[in-house]
């Protein structure tokens, strides 16, 4: 049952990801992306990571994607006239070799994975959200704080790149 669910979710994810980059209409791209986000959330649920699944839907599907749609509608982005870029043979070549590498590594027979500290059973016991919170505010406190600086810089950057009058835009070189 779980395996069947996984195959369904993973297949839809891959198909939607391909559609996201290959469809012509920007709105369709965004909708394909939305579908992909929901299915990724499903994958998280299969992995016993309910908190991540909810965050995935609220943040990605809810906030970020709606923002994309707003931008699309405000800017009235025109449809790409050419369907595929000239570089597509290179893209296929590189994608093919990366896929071959991954498949080869999987077939190799030495693909080993450690179980780690937080097994499904351990997480059931502590609780999903608590486990993340504990790790985030103890072991990973420093990276977590650095994330705040990244957000700060993104905010200031948006101002520097767009605010009127901050940089003299009218001089002609």
């Amino acid at each position: 049952m779980i395996e069947a669910l996984f195959i369904y979710l993973a297949t839809v994810c891959v198909i939607c990801a391909v559609l996201t980059v290959s469809l012509r209409q920007p709105v369709y791209n965004v909708l394909a992306l939305l579908t992909m986000f929901f299915h990724v959330a499903g994958l998280y649920v299969l992995l016993n990571a309910e908190f991540l699944a909810v965050v995935q839907i609220i943040v990605y599907a809810g906030a970020i994607l709606v923002l994309y749609l707003f931008v699309l509608m405000l800017l009235n982005v025109r449809t790409q006239s050419r369907h595929l870029h000239r570089q597509w043979p290179f893209a296929v070549l590189i994608l093919g070799s990366v896929t071959a590498m991954l498949v080869g590594a999987l077939q190799d027979g030495t693909w080993g994975v450690a179980s780690g500290e937080y097994t499904a059973a351990a997480i059931q016991e502590i609780g999903n959200t608590q486990a993340i919170g504990l790790r985030l505010y103890t072991d990973y406190l420093l990276p977590f704080e650095v994330a705040s600086l990244v957000l700060l810089v993104a905010m200031i950057g948006a101002i520097v790149l767009t605010k009127k009058g901050l940089i003299d835009d009218h001089i002609k070189e």
């Binding site: 810089v153 950057g157 520097v160 790149l161 940089i167 003299d168 835009d169």
Partner: peptide, 10 residues
């Protein structure tokens, strides 16, 4: 990324 684009009129 932001610093590279700072000369935004060019």
């Amino acid at each position: 990324y932001i610093m590279a684009a700072m000369k935004r009129y060019e």
